[in-house]
C-alpha cells in the first residue's frame, strides 16, 4: 500500500516535471546576466576562464559559503564520530605492488593537483577539482598502509589557515575602502599565469582547504569503519 502510494507520487512528479520543463525552448537560455558577464568579465576580472571569474569574482560569496559548508560537514562528522574509540585500523596491509604503486603515484598526483589548482583561472579546473586530486593523493597511501595514522591536527591547521587566508584576502579589500571580496592585485595580461588579480591566490587557498577537508573526512570515516 505504502509502496503503491510512493510509486504513484513518483510518477506524478515525473509527469509534472516533464510537462514543466518540456514547455521551454531548450538550449535558448535567456542569459540576461550571463551575456553581461561574458562581455564584461575579461575586462573586469581578467581571467581567461570565465567560469572562474564567476566562481571567485561575481559570485565569490557563494564560494565562501560553499567551503564553509564543506568545513561544517567535516566538523560535524568529526564531532559525531569522535569518541568511537577509533584505535588502530585492522585492515591488512596492501601487497607489494599496491604499496609501491601508491608511493610512485603520490608525487604525480600532487603535481597534477597543484597544476589544476594553479591554472584554474586559465583552463577548465580550479580549486575544487585540484583539491579533490590532492585529497586523493593523501588518501591513496592510507589505503595501501592502513596502519599509518593520519595527523588530524596537521590537516586541521592546513584547512583552518587556508580558509582564514581566503577570508583575509577578501577582507583586505575593506581596508582599501572597497566591498568585501573585491579583487585588489594588479590584473596583468589576460591568459598569463600571473594574471587576474587575487583570483589565483583565492584558488590556491581553496584548493588546499578542499584537499585537507576531504582527506580528513575520508580518514574519519575510514577509521571508524576499520574499528568495527
Amino acid at each position: 500500500m505504502r509502496k503503491a502510494a510512493a510509486l504513484l507520487f513518483t510518477l506524478g512528479l515525473l509527469f509534472l516535471l516533464s510537462v514543466m520543463f518540456l514547455r521551454f525552448e531548450l538550449g535558448q537560455a535567456p542569459m540576461r546576466i550571463g551575456k553581461d558577464i561574458l562581455a564584461a568579465a575579461p575586462e573586469q576580472v581578467g581571467a581567461a576562464n570565465i567560469v572562474t571569474s564567476v566562481v571567485l569574482g561575481y559570485r565569490g560569496l557563494d564560494t565562501l559559503g560553499e567551503i564553509a559548508i564543506l568545513f561544517t560537514a567535516a566538523t560535524a562528522t568529526g564531532l559525531i564520530l569522535s569518541g568511537l574509540g577509533g584505535g588502530q585500523r585492522r585492515d591488512p596491509e596492501g601487497g607489494f605492488i599496491l604499496r609501491h604503486g601508491a608511493d610512485l603515484v603520490f608525487p604525480f598526483l600532487m603535481l597534477v593537483g597543484m597544476y589544476i589548482v594553479v591554472h584554474g583561472h586559465l583552463t577548465p579546473g580550479g580549486g575544487f577539482q585540484g583539491g579533490v586530486v590532492l585529497a586523493a593523493a593523501f588518501f591513496l597511501p592510507l589505503l595501501a598502509r592502513p596502519s599509518r595514522a593520519v595527523s588530524h591536527s596537521a590537516l586541521g591547521w592546513i584547512e583552518g589557515l587556508a580558509g582564514a587566508s581566503f577570508i583575509v584576502i577578501g577582507l583586505w579589500a575593506l581596508t582599501l575602502d572597497q566591498a568585501f571580496m573585491t579583487p585588489w592585485l594588479h590584473q596583468g595580461v589576460l591568459g598569463e599565469l600571473f594574471s587576474a588579480g587575487t583570483l589565483p591566490l583565492l584558488y590556491l587557498a581553496l584548493g588546499l582547504k578542499v584537499g585537507a577537508e576531504l582527506a580528513s573526512l575520508l580518514a574519519h570515516l575510514a577509521e571508524v569503519e576499520a574499528s568495527e
Partner: peptide
C-alpha cells in the same frame, strides 16, 4: 552593498 565591487544584477 555590491560584494566584490560588481554591480548587482551581475554580482551578489
Amino acid at each position: 552593498v555590491a560584494l566584490g565591487g560588481f554591480q548587482p544584477p551581475m554580482g551578489i
